[in-house]
Computed example of a mutant assay.
Amino acid sequence: MDVLSYQLTRARARGAVFSALRRVAPWGLAFTGRRPLTAHILLDGAGWLTPSQEEPVRLAAGDVVLATAGDPYEIVSEVGADIETITDARRRGSDHGPGQASHIVCGAYVVEGSVGKSLLESLPRFARIPAHAQNPRHRDAISLLAAEAEGTGSGQQVLLDRLLDLNLVYALRTWWQQEHQRAPGWYRALTDPRLARVIQAIHAHPERTWRVESMARTAEMSRAGFSATFKEIIGQSPGSYLTQLRMGHAEDALLRTDATLAAIAADVGYTNEFAFATAFRRAHGLPPGQWRATHRPTLQREATTTAAQRDAVHRSDTL
């Protein structure tokens, strides 16, 4: 698995709530801004993103906007247009009358854990990926998403979910290429072949006994040169990065499996349960067993809520 795939998988970045709406101008949609990560795609027509604390941003056909959590905002056909909440819009369904129409796709993502937090911190409040800057395959995926959103065939929801996930990968790639200095450190490191070998190796096998010396050998660099380059590009020491990676694996295992602490310790590269518990408590403020007992019920409640939301949205969109 490549590093971007790993990060998105660990962050559980997948579509949770989805809608595809046709609107005839003038129109406006209001969003609470509470979702950790939401993607908006203006499939055709034109519009405006109107944040509550910023100047409006012009949107053209094919533009993608990634929105992280914050103040409420709106997407409108023209500044000053009457608006309705996205909840009411989903309940009402698409407009089918004549006039200047736009189709807009909105998908909220589930993003979890420290890996998800790191991913979100690399994004601004709004990241706009204009159509002209998109990879041709990204534009093809958006076209396919638009076509599928218009259909009613069997398996449609699964296809829409996967296409929404595909959009996120392409959008993140493009944004980080455009805003390289704002990209996560691991992504910046992938542009350096020496560091890329190390990042890929420790992501593939975090349980191995990694030392700075062994990482430097993998990079084919001196120990001092490797440490300095790693910290300059990634923003943290090799040891800190490895610990953070292992903690991400541990979080996942604690929340989603019934594995013992000893088994988890071995899987993430610690020689014994005590060493693992010490490192985990230093990173999280709680021992792993207590952290599991505190966070697992929350995860289960959120999963139940998400499933109910998906069912409600799907029913309202097919009315």
Rank of each mutant, 00 (worst) to 15 (best):
P287G: 12
Q156L: 12
L168I: 05
T294S: 13
F274W: 09
L8G: 04
R91L: 13
V110A: 11
Y6D: 04
P184V: 05
R217L: 11
G93A: 04
I41C: 10
E232T: 11
A265K: 11
D140S: 12
H314I: 06
V17Y: 04
T218N: 08
T38V: 14
Q7M: 08
E251M: 10
A201K: 09
H284I: 00
D161F: 01
E54K: 07
R194E: 12
V65K: 03
T174G: 14
Y109W: 08
T243G: 05
Y73A: 00
N272E: 07
F31N: 02
G185P: 02
T209Q: 05
Y73T: 00
L21N: 02
V105I: 15
P124V: 01
A16K: 08
M247P: 03
T243R: 15
R34Y: 02
A308Y: 07
N135E: 15
Q157W: 15
L37W: 07
A262H: 12
A219R: 10
F276C: 09
D63L: 04
L119D: 12
R282M: 03
Y270V: 01
E78S: 07
H103R: 14
A141L: 13
L119I: 11
A108L: 03
R34M: 07
D311H: 13
R296A: 07
G185M: 09
A127T: 01
A146S: 13
L145P: 10
T294Q: 15
A183T: 06
D140Q: 15
E112F: 00
A279D: 09
A147F: 12
A279C: 08
I199P: 02
L160T: 05
R22K: 11
P297M: 14
R92W: 09
G70Y: 05
L37H: 08
H40T: 05
H314R: 10
P288W: 03
V76P: 00
I142F: 03
L195W: 10
D71M: 13
L299N: 08
E150M: 09
R296L: 07
F126M: 13
L49N: 03
A141P: 00
R125E: 12
G93H: 02
I129F: 08
F280M: 02
T87P: 00
Q200N: 13
A307R: 14
W186C: 06
E251L: 11
R58T: 04
E220S: 14
Y187N: 02
P56F: 04
D44Q: 07
L168P: 06
R223D: 14
Q7I: 02
P72W: 03
G70W: 04
R282Q: 10
A108W: 03
A131L: 09
A11V: 00
T318E: 14
R23W: 04
P193Q: 05
V79R: 05
A67E: 06
D165A: 13
S316E: 15
V3D: 07
G47L: 03
L163H: 06
V57F: 08
Q290I: 11
G289A: 10
A308I: 04
L168Q: 06
A149N: 02
H138G: 04
A81K: 00
D258Y: 11
L254K: 03
Y187R: 10
L119C: 09
G70N: 09
H314L: 12
V65A: 04
C106N: 14
L43G: 03
S5W: 02
Y6P: 00
T257C: 08
Q177L: 15
A30Y: 01
